[in-house]
Amino acid sequence: MITAEQKPLQEIFGYIAPYEKILVVGCNECVTVCAAGGRKEVGLLSSALRLHSVKAGKKLEVLEHTLERQCDPEYVDQLKELAGQVDAIVSLACGCGIQTVAAQYAIPVFPGVNTKFMGASESQGIWAERCMGCGDCMLGVTGGICPVARCSKSLMNGPCGGNSSGKCEISEDVDCAWQLIWNRLVELGIQDRYEELVAAKDWRPAGGGGPRKIIREDLAASKIITEDMA
C-alpha cells in the first residue's frame, strides 16, 4: 500500500489563502487505509480549514467529497460538477491521485498530504516501509526480506559493521535488514546461500532509466485500436 501523512496545516493554509471556495477531495483507497485521506480526514481537514478562516476573518467555503480512487480518470471525472463550483482543490490522495485530478481540471490542485512510501501495516496505526519499487525484485534470494528498502544503505551483501544486536546503526528503532535476512535463511535452513555474492544492482528498472511505465499489450490493445480507428 502507498502510505501518506497529512501535511502541516500551515502549509495548506498557505496554498488556499487566495481562494474563497475550495473542494477537499479524499480517496477511498490507500490513503483511507492509512488514515491520511479518507472521508474522515476530509471532514477533519475541512473543519480545520473553516475554523482557520474564521480565525483569520476571511470568507471560505469548503466542500467535501471522497472518490473511490483518485488515480483513475473515470473516477476523477465524477468531480466535474463540484470542481465547477470551486476556485481550487485540495487533494488528500497520494501523489498519483493529486496529479490525476490536476490533469483533469483547469483549476489549482494542491496536495493535502505528503506521500511517504510503499509500506505494510505492522499494527494499528503503525506502517513501515517494505518496498522501494526497484523493478527487479530480489526477495527470492534474500529470504523474503528486502535489503533495498529495508537496509539503510541498500547493501546487496550486508550486514555492515554497524549492526548492533540486530539494530541498524542509524537508530535503535530500525531493525538491521541483513540480520533479519540471516535469521530467515537460518530458519529456512538455507544459510549456505549467504555466501553467494550478490552482484551490484542494476538500477535501470528502479527508475534509473527514467520515468517508468507499464504497457500491457493485451489489455491496452482495444484502447490502441479504438484510438487508431478514431
Binding site: S152, K153, N157, G162, I170
Partner: peptide, 19 residues
C-alpha cells in the same frame, strides 16, 4: 550513514556496497 554526520539531509548514494 549520513544520518550520523553533519549532512543528514544529503541523499545517500550507496549505488554499490563495499563488496
Amino acid at each position: 550513514h549520513p544520518q550520523f554526520g553533519d549532512h543528514p539531509m544529503a541523499k545517500p548514494v550507496y549505488d554499490i556496497d563495499s563488496i
